[in-house]
Design a protein around this nucleic acid. Structure first.
Length: 153
DNA sequence: GCCAACGTTGGC
DNA sequence: GCCAACGTTGGC
């Protein structure tokens, strides 16, 4: 099993929103970055665990845990001309963007803020989430870092 | 709202 | 294939 971190802007979609979804599952659509796509399409498997990270908000950080509920399939929003994530260059016979479905697992007892993560820089060497200028919205987390982060809860 | 970081695009 | 211009992300 692998571990991941996935970002979302809580104004658009928060972990509370995820918890309220039917079956607590949401298709993680709208990812338009090749590296993030490749992680979802090629590596994420049902049962993998992921941190739910709130970005672009008052207190950025990790707010909870979710799991992969469904492996990758083409993101339907790429074909929808009315959708904000429409990609006119994508073809149905050759989809460009993929998504996975994520299921709510739990909120953290207390959010682990980006600030707190940075304070444990030494134990999180090589963890992309604290790297400067990091913009990846889906990134792998090493097992030891996953444990380290959970120990900060 | 600012701006640094960084990915993508397109002219050459 | 280079690289300037541009767009987006996301912390602050």
């Amino acid at each position: 099993m692998r571990y991941w971190l996935m970002k979302s802007e809580p104004d658009a979609f928060s972990i509370d929103d995820l918890k309220k979804r039917p079956k607590r599952i949401e298709p993680w659509d709208g990812v338009r970055n090749y590296q993030a796509r490749n992680f979802m399409r090629d590596q994420m498997q049902v049962g993998d665990q992921a941190f739910f990270y709130h970005s672009n908000c008052d207190v950025p950080g990790i707010y909870g845990v979710m799991e992969v509920a469904c492996a990758a399939y083409p993101d339907p929003t790429q074909f929808n001309a009315k959708h904000h994530h429409y990609d006119p260059t994508a073809k149905r016979e050759e989809p460009r963007w993929f998504l996975v479905e994520m299921r709510y697992v739990r909120h953290l007892k207390k959010p682990i803020t980006l600030d707190a993560l940075k304070q444990h820089e030494a134990a999180l060497q090589g963890c992309a989430v604290i790297a400067r200028g990091n913009r990846l919205s889906v990134m792998p987390i090493r097992a030891e870092h996953w444990q380290t982060i959970l120990s900060l809860e």
